[in-house]
Design a protein around this nucleic acid. Sequence first.
DNA 1: GCGTTCATTATACACCTGTAGACTTAAAAG
DNA 2: CTTTTAAGTCTACAGGTGTATAATGAACGC
Lengths: 199, 199
Amino acid sequence: MNAPEGRSAKAAATRAAILASARRAFAQHGYEGAGLRGIAEEAGVTAMMVNRYFGSKEGLFGEVVHDTMRDPVILSPVNLAAADPARAFAEALVGLTGTEATPLDGFLILFRSTTSDTAARIARARIAEAHQRTAEGSVAGEHAAERAALLLSLVAGVQMMRQMMQLAPLAGADPAVLAGLLTPVIGLLLGRVSAPSQG
Amino acid sequence: MNAPEGRSAKAAATRAAILASARRAFAQHGYEGAGLRGIAEEAGVTAMMVNRYFGSKEGLFGEVVHDTMRDPVILSPVNLAAADPARAFAEALVGLTGTEATPLDGFLILFRSTTSDTAARIARARIAEAHQRTAEGSVAGEHAAERAALLLSLVAGVQMMRQMMQLAPLAGADPAVLAGLLTPVIGLLLGRVSAPSQG
DNA sequence: GCGTTCATTATACACCTGTAGACTTAAAAG
DNA sequence: CTTTTAAGTCTACAGGTGTATAATGAACGC
């Protein structure tokens, strides 16, 4: 496909391949369930390359999490700039297909890796971070912290029921219907009342 | 503490001890993360007792899931018989402390075990089952299937953010506040409008 | 009493895990 | 060409996993 120019370019490509493979593996099998040999094989190299480029499995996981969580998780400011933030939010949540690499991949990785103490600590810190960002920037009204937490819970729950449990009405239903149902709920949690607009 | 009468009574006690230990272990570390030796040690026996009583690790997991999921998961009919179903539902959800064995332990076990293909299949079937029960028995109005799925997502999300991610506003906040915030949300999803009643 | 039965343990096996060190191989520099 | 440098692999090790088989030891029926 693309011919690398030098050895260092190839090295960077290998590193990226490992990272991509690791992201998929961690999202699917969790921290403990994913094996270095499997990750390396999917990247086309040996398991030792992981240790060469990332020091250890823990180091690789940290890099993956850092990489995936770099962009603001869900509540990107673009949603709030819309005329109807709740509807924009709902549509953004529903619109994510979940099959490809989405910003919510990070959620899967974090939740699937909570069984490991090492990964759980990282995951909790990331979630608390996202929560604080949500509470400060997106939620209005009283009990903003609680509202933000519930909003985060809803997003996480929907994503899990869809991606992990493959619940039919969420995985294969009409996105418009889901968005319509979610809009008032999210509006309630955001503290910004949105027009019902159903009928 | 309690003196067993015979050897068969002691055997039953051992079996129960293994089952209880396994439930805790699976809920905390997931299917793959939990080790038979650890489960057995916490039950005060050797790892081989697990195979003796349950055949294999997979058999043990199946028994644990069956045992935990025996009672209706969350939407017990008692909630719907209340004067304000949404509020009763919200209070029931918030009231679960999560530290002891609750009906929602099953959720944790299922979600934590989705990394294993074997366990994932069982988990999906159980969730689909709970969804159908919810959609048919508790949710009113149009798009009952989608509403039930979103309600299940909310419950699962709250429980995860609290038990797995230990998000502060959910893990340690005032239950009354959370219930007050959740009531209208749940009412919206149930399709039964509940009185605001926050004055 | 003896012999049987069954709960329980001890030992062992084959496999998998993450990782360390020595080795190979190919690209760059002289 | 030769030498050097770094990417990549091979082999191996210590520890863990689930599990099968053999041995132990105490409670039961006779």
